[in-house]
Amino acid sequence: MSKTVVVTGAGSGIGKAIATVAAQRDWRVVVTDIDLDAATAVAAGLDDPAGLGHEATQLDVTDPAQAAMVADDIADRLGLDAWMSNAGISFMVPFLDVSLDNYDLTMDINLKGVFICGQAAARAMVRTGRRGTIVNTASMAGKQGRVPYLSDYVASKHGVVGLTQAMAYELAEHGITVNCVCPGFVATPMQSRELDWEAQLRGTTPDKVKQMWIDDTPLGRLQQPEDVAYTVAFLLSDDARFITGEALAVNGGAYMD
Rank of each mutant, 00 (worst) to 15 (best):
T244P: 11
V126F: 09
N110M: 03
Q211N: 11
T8R: 10
T244A: 10
A71G: 03
V186N: 06
T205P: 07
V178Y: 01
P49K: 01
R202Y: 05
E55K: 14
T32I: 07
L236V: 05
I214G: 08
Y230R: 15
E246V: 13
V250M: 13
R131K: 15
G113N: 04
Q223F: 05
W213F: 12
R130C: 12
G132M: 13
V232Q: 09
A10E: 03
D33T: 01
Q191K: 11
K210C: 13
N86L: 08
A87H: 03
A50L: 14
F242S: 15
N179G: 06
K143Y: 01
G220E: 01
V126N: 13
T137C: 15
L111Y: 00
A17N: 05
L105A: 12
V232N: 09
I34H: 12
P183I: 00
I176Y: 02
D60Y: 06
R202A: 10
G45R: 01
R123T: 14
Q144F: 02
I109D: 02
D152E: 13
Y149R: 08
E246R: 15
V30D: 06
L52P: 00
G9C: 10
K16W: 04
Q211F: 10
L80H: 06
V93T: 15
V21F: 06
A87W: 01
I176K: 01
R28V: 01
L36K: 13
L150F: 08
V228T: 07
V98C: 08
S151P: 00
G142M: 02
L78N: 11
V178S: 04
S192E: 15
D227Y: 08
F91V: 11
G13F: 04
E194Y: 04
R127P: 05
R123Q: 15
M212W: 12
Q224M: 14
I109V: 14
A17G: 07
Y103Q: 09
D76W: 04
L111M: 07
V228Q: 08
L171P: 00
P148C: 11
R221D: 02
N102P: 00
T177R: 14
G51R: 10
R202F: 07
Q119G: 11
Q224P: 02
L248V: 14
G175N: 06
V21Y: 04
L46R: 00
F91N: 09
K157N: 01
D239K: 15
L46M: 03
L163Y: 04
G142W: 00
G129Y: 07
G220T: 02
G113S: 07
D227S: 08
T205H: 14
R28A: 08
P206W: 09
V209Q: 09
T133Y: 11
L96D: 13
M125E: 12
V70S: 03
A75N: 06
F234V: 07
T8C: 14
G252I: 00
T32V: 06
A240I: 06
V29G: 03
S90Q: 13
S192M: 14
E246F: 09
D63G: 05
T137D: 10
K3F: 10
S192L: 14
T133K: 15
M190I: 12
D26C: 10
A43V: 08
R130K: 14
V29D: 02
A247K: 02
H158C: 07
L59D: 02
Q144H: 09
Q58H: 12
G159R: 01
K143Q: 13
S90K: 07
V21E: 09
A39V: 03
R221N: 05
G142S: 04
M107H: 14
D104G: 05
